[in-house]
């Protein structure tokens, strides 16, 4: 089995090559293959759902803006008596291909378990302080949302109007944001001491290397990197 983070890593490299590809049709086809590989690497239906939810809202405005509105492309085609700009549509699909590759990889990445992510960072010998910094940041983002809800409740409980119109909500904004900011900053000293006492950032990790996936991984590298690179190279030649 290929560790998911490494499979994603190979498809990311392949995706970078595809994003630089010159021929629009090849570009689009290879992009489709990279997206499929990425989804397969995570083995998760959630990845498909997330990918579609994030990317479709980008595809539709792209097609509308460049296929209908952008005056730099000629209005030279019709579909069901609706005029459109054919070059604009091709341009939109090309831009979307890059986006789709990027979004698929990033969406796959977002569905990677947090523990696997950190194991991968350590296995890649990322400096411990960076690993810790990213870890604390992500943990505190979750905390900020939780605190924000608690603060909103507490300020509502005290009678501060948090609605019904935008003017009230705007005036309430400092009362919700500032307690979150102030409490986090005031806690910095204690947090730092507590983490230091655990030996956090003080000692080197014993990095655990992720296992090699055998022939499967070789096949994966071939499909995601070697094949697109070869096709693109031969077209340019």
């Amino acid at each position: 089995m290929i560790p998911p983070v490494r499979a994603l890593g190979w498809t990311a490299l392949g995706g970078t090559i595809v994003m630089c590809s010159s021929d629009r049709l090849v570009h689009f086809s290879l992009a489709v293959s990279i997206v499929a590989l990425t989804v397969a690497s995570t083995k998760s239906l959630k990845t498909i759902k997330t990918f579609v939810t994030i990317s479709l809202p980008l595809l539709v405005p792209l097609i509308l803006i460049h296929g209908l509105v952008n005056p730099q492309f000629e209005m030279n085609a019709r579909m069901w008596s609706v005029p459109y700009r054919q070059e604009g549509i091709t341009f939109a699909l090309s831009v979307y291909s890059n986006l789709a590759v990027f979004l698929a990889i990033a969406t796959g990445w977002a569905n990677v378990n947090r523990d696997e992510f950190f194991d991968w960072m350590v296995a890649c010998r990322v400096p411990v302080f960076l690993v810790g910094l990213v870890g604390q940041s992500i943990a505190m983002v979750i905390l900020i949302e939780k605190r924000g809800r608690a603060v909103l409740k507490a300020q509502t409980a005290r009678g501060i109007p948090t609605g019904p119109n935008w003017r009230h909500r705007l005036r309430a904004l400092p009362s919700v944001i500032l307690p979150v900011v102030t409490s986090l900053i005031n806690e910095a000293d204690q947090r730092s001491t507590a983490l230091w006492s655990r030996g956090f950032l003080e000692y080197e990790f014993a990095a655990k290397d992720l296992p090699f996936g055998g022939f499967r991984e070789i096949g994966w590298v071939a499909a995601s990197i070697i094949l697109p690179a070869a096709i693109d190279f031969s077209l340019r030649a």
Binding site: R114, D115, G132, S137, I138, A139, E187, A194, R198
Partner: peptide
Amino acid sequence: SFLFSGMKSD
């Protein structure tokens, strides 16, 4: 909670 590193989900 100041002890939690945030690097592990459990």
